[in-house]
């Protein structure tokens, strides 16, 4: 038995040590907001925050998450809330599938860089693929979230 702390709540689960956090979170804990996209850290759909920093949950074993604070898209942080507001105002998503990972990656960016430039955004977000092509709106929405936060 292992205990994961996700969005402030403890979940005691049974899972093999090498099971990636992604599948433990989705199939065993039952939080499906974190998405599978590639399984090999190429697309960022599975992004989660561990102690405030973005990681690819498809490529880290469940054992890595023990004793740490995990935040998924179902969770709440200050930056996530501003980003959500900006995403909603700018109507960023198309199919929406990658947006969990996009929001989490953006939250991690704002955690370390409160006022990112376009270049900072591109650097931080280019690990996240959006097949629908919402990149220009994501860029815009991150700037917007900064404005909302500073208001």
């Amino acid at each position: 038995m292992k205990t994961l702390t996700i969005n402030g709540k403890n979940h005691t689960i049974e899972a093999q040590d090498d099971m990636p956090l992604l599948w433990a979170i989705r199939d065993i804990v039952g939080l499906t907001g974190t998405k599978y996209g590639c399984g090999v850290s190429q697309c960022g759909a599975c992004s989660i925050l561990i102690d405030g920093e973005v990681v690819r949950s498809c490529s880290l074993p469940v054992s890595y998450g023990i004793g740490k604070q995990i935040t998924t898209i179902e969770g709440k942080t200050d930056n996530l809330e501003y980003l959500r507001e900006a995403w909603e105002e700018i109507n960023v998503p198309q199919c929406g599938y990658c947006q969990s990972g996009q929001l989490i990656a953006a939250a991690s960016l704002l955690n370390t860089n409160p006022n990112p430039s376009d270049q900072d955004i591109d650097d931080a977000m280019s690990g996240n693929i959006c097949r629908c092509g919402t990149y220009p709106r994501i860029r815009k929405a991150i700037h917007k979230a900064v404005k909302l936060k500073n208001k």
Binding site: T32, Y36, I73, E88, L103
Partner: peptide
């Protein structure tokens, strides 16, 4: 222009895609 009726589900991870069916 009308915002998506599903926007909040998209931003909170609560939209159910096929892979999320349980």
């Amino acid at each position: 222009t009308l915002g998506s009726v599903d926007i909040k589900d998209f931003t909170h991870g609560s939209a159910t895609y096929g892979l999320d069916a349980r």
